[in-house]
Nucleic acid binder design. Structure first.
Lengths: 251, 251
DNA sequence: CGAACGCTTGAGAGGCATCAAGAAACGTGG
DNA sequence: CCACGTTTCTTGATGCCTCTCAAGCGTTCG
C-alpha cells in the first residue's frame, strides 16, 4: 500500500509515532470515490465527518442561484476537508470535486476518542487550521488592496506552496485543473479579468503554460513583488503535546 | 471576582465542569493592561502565547510601510487572540489595542498539559477557530462580490452578532470604537467609501448613530438583504470530548 | 486654545465588471 | 476517426463603481 498523503504531509512537520501512523492508515483504508463535478455535500445538508482527501482536487463554494458564486476553499491531496464546518450543524458550503477524487471520512463521532488517544494529531489538525486561517487573511489582503494581476499571482504562488508539501511540483511547474472562471470565483475577479491577468503575467515572463501544466518562471521574484509569504512550509510545533506511543485503552 | 468573559462565552455553548471553570479563572487571574494604540506584538516578533481578551477591543493588522494596510482580525472581550499565529514561529501581524484593554496570557508552553487535562477546552478553542474561519469566508465573499454598502452592512452585522455573545448589545445597539478608516482597512474599502456607505445606510433607515453608539434599526431586514448568516450564536458541539471533572494527574 | 484626529463632501480618473462574439480545446457518440 | 456540441479561452467596447486627491468642518485632548 502506498503511503497516505496525509501521513506524508504530517511527517513533513513531526516524526509520527507508529501508533499514530497506524491509526491514520487504518482510518484511510476505504476511500470513497467521487467523480468530477459531483457533490460531496450541499449547502444546508449535514456534513457528518471531516474528510481526508487522498487524490484529486475538491472545491468548497457558496451556492448562489446562478453559477457558483465564490470559491471559499480549494483542497489538494493530503488536505483535511470540512474542518471549517466542524462548528456548524449544517454545512454552509457546497463541496464539489474539481477532478475525479478519492476521500476518506473521519466521522465527527470518532473525534472524542481521538482527543484522548491521539491528542497530538488533534493538535496538528489545529495547527493546519491556524495556518490556513493565516493564508485566508492573505487572500483577503489581496482582494481588498491589490490589482487583478497581483491577486492572480498571489493565488498561483499560494497554490504552488501548498502543492509543494505533497511533492506535486517539478521545477516550479504544476498542473492546475481549474478553469479561469473558477480561479475568478476564488480570488473575486471576473473571468475576463483573470484571463487578462494571466496573459499579462505570461507576457512579463512570470508564467509559462505548457499543455496542462503551468510554470512560475521567476517565482522568487514574483513572490517578493506581491509580498507572498509561504505559511505552510514551516509550522511551529513547540506547543504540541507528546505523540501517543500506543492507542490508550479507555480505562 | 466578576466572571471571566471567556467562561461566559464558553457557557453559552456547553456546561463547563467546575474543574474547567476553575482552570480558566486561574489562568485569567493576572491580566496585563494595554493602553489604546499600544502594541501587544509586532510583525516578526514571537507571539509566545495565546491571549484571552478580558476588556477592550484589539486589532490585528498587516504592517505596510505607510499607514495600517489591512485589518485582519478584530477581537472583542471573551475572544482568544493569536490562535491564527499558533502555527507560526514569528507573528506575521501587528497586534494593537483599539481601546484600553486587559488580557491574560495562556503561554504556548501550557497547551500540552491542557491537551491532556482539559481536552474539551481545546476542542472548544478548535470550534471557535472553525467558526471564525467560516466568518472570514463571509468577509471574503463580501469583498469580492458585493458593493461597498453591502460590505459595510455585513461588517456591522457580523460585529453585532459577535458582541451579542458577551451581552454588549442593547436593543440592537452597540458601541463601535473604530474609526471609519479602520473599518475601511477591515473590509477593503477606502475611508471615503466607508463614509458614503454609512451615510447611505443611515439615509435608508438601516443605521442610527446616537453619540458613540450605533443601532441597526432594521437588522433582520438588512441581514436578509446581504445574506448574512449568524455563525457564532449556535455551534455544533457533538464532536467534543467529555469535560474533565478534575485536573488529571500527569501520572 | 491650538493641534491632531476623524468626519464629510466634491470632482476627476482609472480599473474592473459586464456584454458580446468568435476561436480553440475537449468529449462524446456515431 | 470524424462530426458535433459543450466548455473554455480570448479579445474588444462600454459603463460604472470605487479610489484618489483635495478642502472644509467638527471634535477631542493635551
Amino acid at each position: 500500500m502506498t503511503e497516505s498523503c496525509l501521513v506524508a504531509k504530517l511527517k513533513h512537520y513531526v516524526e509520527l509515532t507508529p501508533a499514530e501512523a497506524e491509526f491514520l492508515e487504518k482510518a484511510e483504508a476505504e476511500p470513497q470515490k467521487l467523480s468530477r463535478r459531483s457533490n460531496l455535500a450541499s449547502s444546508g445538508q449535514k456534513l457528518p465527518a471531516i474528510y481526508v482527501l487522498k487524490t484529486g482536487w475538491l472545491l468548497a463554494h457558496t451556492n448562489e442561484e446562478d453559477g457558483m458564486d465564490m470559491v471559499a476553499e480549494i483542497y489538494h491531496p493530503g488536505d483535511l476537508v470540512g474542518v471549517s464546518q466542524l462548528g456548524c450543524e449544517f454545512s454552509t458550503l457546497n463541496y464539489v470535486a474539481a477532478t475525479d477524487a478519492e476521500l476518506c471520512a473521519l466521522p465527527k463521532g470518532s473525534l472524542p476518542e481521538m482527543f484522548v488517544a491521539f491528542p497530538r494529531l488533534i493538535g496538528l489538525f489545529f495547527g493546519f487550521a491556524s495556518v490556513e486561517r493565516a493564508s485566508l487573511i492573505d487572500r483577503l489582503r489581496a482582494m481588498g488592496r491589490m490589482s487583478a494581476r497581483d491577486c492572480v499571482a498571489l493565488f498561483l504562488l499560494q497554490t504552488h506552496a501548498r502543492l509543494c508539501l505533497t511533492g506535486a511540483v517539478d521545477d516550479d511547474s504544476f498542473s492546475l485543473p481549474l478553469s479561469q472562471e473558477t480561479i475568478g470565483n476564488a480570488v473575486g475577479l471576473s473571468t475576463v479579468s483573470v484571463n487578462r491577468a494571466i496573459r499579462l503575467l505570461e507576457s512579463e515572463g512570470h508564467l509559462v503554460r505548457e499543455q496542462r501544466r503551468l510554470r512560475l518562471a521567476q517565482r522568487e521574484l514574483l513572490a517578493r513583488e506581491v509580498d507572498f509569504v509561504d505559511r505552510v512550509y514551516r509550522m511551529d510545533n513547540s506547543w504540541l503535546p507528546a505523540g501517543a506511543t500506543s492507542a490508550r485503552d479507555p480505562s
